[in-house]
Write a protein that binds this DNA or RNA. Structure first.
Length: 595
DNA sequence: CCTGCCGGGCG
DNA sequence: CGCCCGGCAGG
């Protein structure tokens, strides 16, 4: 259940209806305290006129909640109780911000990086601060903390607070970094970017609310339900009862912008191509969510891939890198089988392929005349491999054992095989898309081909501006992936230079990627600029090849920002060139008045 | 335009 | 290496 379908997002079409069953929420018991539990069932009175949204949720919808504990709820059935959405606190429902906590309410907060529970002593509504009594450790006294209401949780975060904290200080960019790092342990990877992992300032700043969402998405509580809810909240009609949630979910606060700080601060690589440097429209947000999800998938793929090959001595270090990896591990245990389940009300038929389910939806529910997209009426259970980039990675046959040694023999940038691999991936991308456009193939590329991908499977659309698709279709039919025997063949194929150039013009120069993306297919948010290969050994090739048109447009981290200080030239003037620092004399970056 | 400086060439 | 310079990019 991992497909939070956003594929229609950009079209503005409505979303798939998705179950919210299983969501964690808190509900007010009759004793006046909130108790955590999960949504166990949803009951919506069948009154079509109320059903103005796609998700079959109306103001009258009742949510059965199964509580973790067994609070006293009057005469109702033990353990499961019904609430309306307004009575629930949780993602997509009410926010804790809206509630007044009674003294005695059990709450959870993060204190010194750990999650601790406490009991509300007083909730000062004026300043929205909560005095919380904390039970001291064994030999310590109890103490009291004052927390802002928004820092208070009504249920345990099921993750280690350390991770929670990490993630809160994280952003997608960083996530990409992490992924990138791991990616490097892959046998398909390149030693890319020192930069990739350095320089915090380069990270895209995320706002609080973005983090919130991110947190939510990454949480191991995140399931399809939550995701769906988020998504629904992002796109449901204004008439939807959900609109009440939009404030919390969409984060209408001014700080909500997802937009990257773009430009000077080097919007981040996030090699997955998902950082938009433009303003954050809601579609950007959706997109980011999607990317985030995909990141997870990709992590998963990495893990699977690696596990399958089981060839690297390099540790995957998946165990302690946060939710993403948790997810990956979890997924590792699963095998990838997909079942397509019809989500039409009261249907629930399952199918082995999406064609089947689509056909079922169309025939059994929608009818041939309907304009509705079948996509909205089914979900796939278990993992799903998306289409492009990931698949190409994961579905590659296992590497022969030799490669694992051989590709360690040289750094990837020196490794012709690696280069070829890139070529292959590019070619693959081209082959898959070529002919779809007039003379200009758009390549939806998983940046995995650069080994930098990590988050890969980004939906970065990279325009291949090197000519007609046919040109690429003609490429050698050689297997494109990395399992070609190592000492690689020669590069006598005439395509090679072309492709390399192409590659070089792509992800490595974020400038070009962004430039190109302006003319890329409209539905996708522009991919982020990528700082990826700035320190990569490929840089020189890159720049050599790109020295003219392909020059990055954004200040590359590899290139200093223009110094604002006085330089020798200014200070001493042309006449006293002798006094200049050598660097200045050489037209290099001034060493004397360096910035 | 001017200026900083990167990449690269030459010895 | 030291040195020089073409040329890009940003102002």
């Amino acid at each position: 259940m991992k497909k939070y379908f956003l594929n229609k997002m950009s079209t503005g079409k409505r979303l798939a209806k998705r179950s919210i069953i299983g969501m964690r929420v808190c509900a007010l018991a009759e004793d006046g305290f909130y108790y955590p539990g999960r949504i166990h069932a949803v009951k919506t009175p069948a009154s079509p006129k109320d059903n103005q949204n796609c998700i079959n949720l109306t103001p009258n919808t009742r949510y059965s909640v199964r509580f973790d504990s067994n609070p006293v709820f009057g005469s109702q059935r033990r353990g499961i109780y019904e609430f309306s959405c307004s009575e629930l606190i949780g993602d997509g429902f009410g926010s804790i911000i809206d509630v007044k906590l009674k003294p005695g309410q059990k709450v959870y907060i993060t204190h010194n990086g750990r999650e601790i529970s406490g009991v509300v002593i007083e909730h000062n509504v004026q300043v929205d601060e909560v005095n919380i009594q904390i039970q001291g450790a064994a030999n310590e006294a109890n103490f009291e903390l004052v927390k802002k209401l928004e820092e208070v949780r009504l249920s345990e975060s099921r993750r280690s607070p350390r991770l929670a904290d990490q993630e809160r200080s994280t952003d997608f960019a960083r996530l990409a970094d992490m992924a990138g790092d791991r990616r490097r342990t892959s046998s398909q990877s390149i030693d890319v970017p020192i930069q990739f992992t350095q320089n915090g300032s380069r990270k895209r700043r995320t706002s609080f609310s973005l983090d919130e969402r991110y947190y939510m998405l990454d949480s191991d509580e995140m399931d399809e339900c939550n995701a769906a809810l988020v998504l629904m909240s992002l796109s449901c009609s204004p008439n939807s009862p959900r609109q009440a949630f939009e404030g919390t979910l969409l984060g209408t606060s001014p700080g909500d912008s997802i937009q990257s700080s773009s430009g000077s601060s080097s919007p981040h690589l996030s090699d997955d191509g998902n950082v938009s440097s433009s303003s954050a429209s809601s579609s950007d947000k959706k997109y980011i969510i999607k990317q985030n999800h995909k990141l997870q998938i990709n992590q998963h793929n990495m893990s699977v891939d690696q596990a399958r090959r089981n060839q690297r001595t390099t540790s995957l270090s998946t165990s302690d890198e946060g939710i993403v990896m948790d997810y990956g591990e979890e997924m590792l245990r699963k095998r990838r089988t997909k079942i397509y389940k019809c989500t039409w009300k009261n249907c629930g038929s399952t199918f082995a392929t999406d064609e089947q389910v689509k056909s079922h939806v169309r025939n059994a529910h929608l009818g041939p005349k309907s304009n509705d997209d079948e996509d909205f009426y089914f979900t796939d259970l278990e993992d799903e491999t998306e289409t492009f980039g990931i698949d190409t990675m994961v579905s590659s046959p296992p590497l022969p054992p030799t490669l694992s040694h051989s590709d360690m023999a040289r750094p990837p940038h020196e490794d012709p095989e690696y280069q070829r691999q890139i070529v292959g991936n590019i070619r693959q991308g081209l082959l898959m898309t070529s002919g779809s456009n007039n003379g200009q193939a758009y390549m939806k590329t998983s940046l995995s081909f650069a080994g930098i991908n990590s988050v890969s499977n980004n939906n970065a659309w990279v325009q291949n501006n090197l000519g007609s698709p046919q040109k690429h279709v003609k490429l050698s039919p050689r297997p494109s992936t990395s399992y070609a025997p190592y000492p690689s063949t020669t590069y006598s194929t005439s395509n090679y230079p072309v492709l390399i150039q192409q590659y070089n013009s792509m992800p490595s120069s974020h400038g070009s990627i962004s430039k190109l993306s302006h003319s890329s297919p409209p539905q996708l948010p522009p991919p982020p600029q990528q700082n990826l290969l700035m320190h990569s050994p490929l840089k020189s090739i890159n720049q050599a090849n790109n020295s003219n048109k392909m020059r990055p447009q954004i200040v590359s981290p590899g290139r200093r920002t223009r110094g604002e200080n006085k330089k020798c030239r200014k200070v001493y003037g042309m006449d006293n060139r002798d006094s200049w620092c050598t660097q200045c004399k050489w037209k290099k970056a001034c060493s004397r008045f360096g910035d």
